[in-house]
Design a protein around this nucleic acid. Structure first.
Lengths: 266, 266
DNA sequence: CGAACTTTTGATATCACTCAAGGGACGTGG
DNA sequence: CCACGTCCCTTGAGTGATATCAAAAGTTCG
């Protein structure tokens, strides 16, 4: 069985077609050749950053936008007691707008979780991209709406769900998002995220993450081995944590196909 | 002593100048006479709705936008176990975009908490307002950024703060927002919100809200009597829950003034 | 003035946290 | 290739925060 293999018409491995950014936006809107060229141009210069490094922190405020091409990162906030709350995970293909976030300065930082390949877009290039490529702008707007929906989901989870459900939902979300950029099969994906990070995202302690994960494993729902998530029973997992896939993506053949197969096997 | 009195140059009571919507947007951008007229026009037809009524629910999807002119409401989500998580409170002057929220349908409902005066804006009027009044559009964008920042704050609170701090921060937020639309003095405001609602917003049980509130009262920080919040020691309250006022509002003389007085008394 | 709703109080139960120690995995240097 | 250190995950025991249940007290409103 081929892991990470995705049913994309144009390549064996999703990552070989353009970059994750192009792939993600392509799944959200029908981009023209010129749009694609502009996206490629804007990501031409990227840098590798080490794991566990701040790309942006609260005071220091670079402008423009940042695109994560490979690796995992997160937005987070630090508290006075040293605690950390992760606000969202950034996966390959995700863009983070640094200009339009700030009424009175940014209130969060962005840090890598794994080694990351990051493209920085200057303010001028960014606003030009938006103004002269309306389809790209529309795709980014949709991406933003999805992000907001996820944030609301997290809020509901933190407020009203128990640890195992919270964790399970997070894993479902990550699997789905990885699939959307061609980095996951129907039931597996690489997840370079430590248990501390899961804890800081779900508002739980590391110890409790460990125990919740074990509960999910014992229930035969999933397992995580060597930084890889393997969902054993997706329908039951979804039912367990009341996760409903966001089918908000528009023209993406492969994602629809993959999920159809999954549900067919249920 | 005059409660609800606000140091606005144009009236004794904030509510008599235009409506809360106009007041709020005026504090976010410098509106022209034409902008003001357009805002007034768009809110011309408003309806009174009873307390505890759904204005919008998840399946049924009216379009356009909704403006809350008077009263308190909230966005919320229901869970399968009957639980409810409030995602944000809506105060007079708040607008809720019903069109641009939905990738795959709306994922939350909107319900009144008190009796409310609500203006519905049709999709066409709404998009016309945005396109032909760029300053209004900019003000609404800023308002949205503030909303998002508040949502992140809530997430951090739910994930990492204890009950009394969470509640205290919520009360600080509500006081500040009420001030921004001229519905509060420096230390008091009307708050037609029940303890169940505070619980559903902070992810706590009603019982625990009651106890946390008592802790805040015993600490001499604030009290709530007859649906009215009275902050007794604002600086200490802010310090206690690590609340920092969002000074993102731009040209609003009165809010700046009021807070200057407060801090001066500390 | 009474009924329904909201808040408070007390007692008990549960979920998740903290602390502390042990076990694996991985990398590094001898 | 092994020894060792470090980092991450796991396990167990005890504690703390918050939930639940039930009933009393207070409030609002017709």
């Amino acid at each position: 069985m081929m892991l990470e293999r995705v049913n994309s018409p144009t390549s064996d491995f999703g990552r070989t077609v353009g970059n994750a950014f192009v792939r993600k936006l392509s799944s959200l809107a029908l981009l023209s050749q010129m749009d694609l060229a502009a996206l490629a141009g804007v990501c031409a210069h990227s840098r590798w950053e080490p794991a566990r490094k701040d790309l942006v922190h609260e005071d220091l405020a670079p402008s423009g936008a940042l695109v994560l091409l490979e690796g995992f990162a997160c937005r987070y906030r630090r508290l006075s007691d040293g605690g950390r709350q992760i606000l969202s995970f950034l996966l390959p293909g995700d863009l983070c707008d640094l200009d339009h976030n700030l009424p009175s300065g940014r209130d969060y930082a962005i840090g890598t979780l794994s080694v990351c390949n990051v493209a920085w877009i200057s303010s001028t290039n960014y606003s030009e991209l938006l103004s002269s490529h309306s389809t790209v702008a529309a795709a980014l707007r949709t991406a933003k709406l999805l992000e907001e929906a996820i944030l609301r989901d997290w809020l509901v989870g933190l407020g009203r769900r128990h640890a195992p459900e919270r964790l399970a939902r997070l894993l479902c979300e990550l699997l789905e998002r990885a699939q959307a950029v061609g980095l996951a099969s129907a039931d597996r994906c690489h997840l370079p995220i430590m248990q501390v990070d899961f804890g800081d995202a779900t508002g739980l302690s590391t110890v409790h993450i460990s125990r919740s994960l074990q509960a999910l494993r014992l229930a035969g729902l999933l397992e995580i081995v060597a930084r890889r998530l393997h969902v054993i029973d997706l329908p039951r997992l979804h039912a367990f944590c009341e996760f409903s896939p966001m089918r908000a993506r528009l023209g993406d053949g492969f994602a629809v196909e993959a999920s159809a197969i999954t549900w067919g096997a249920a």
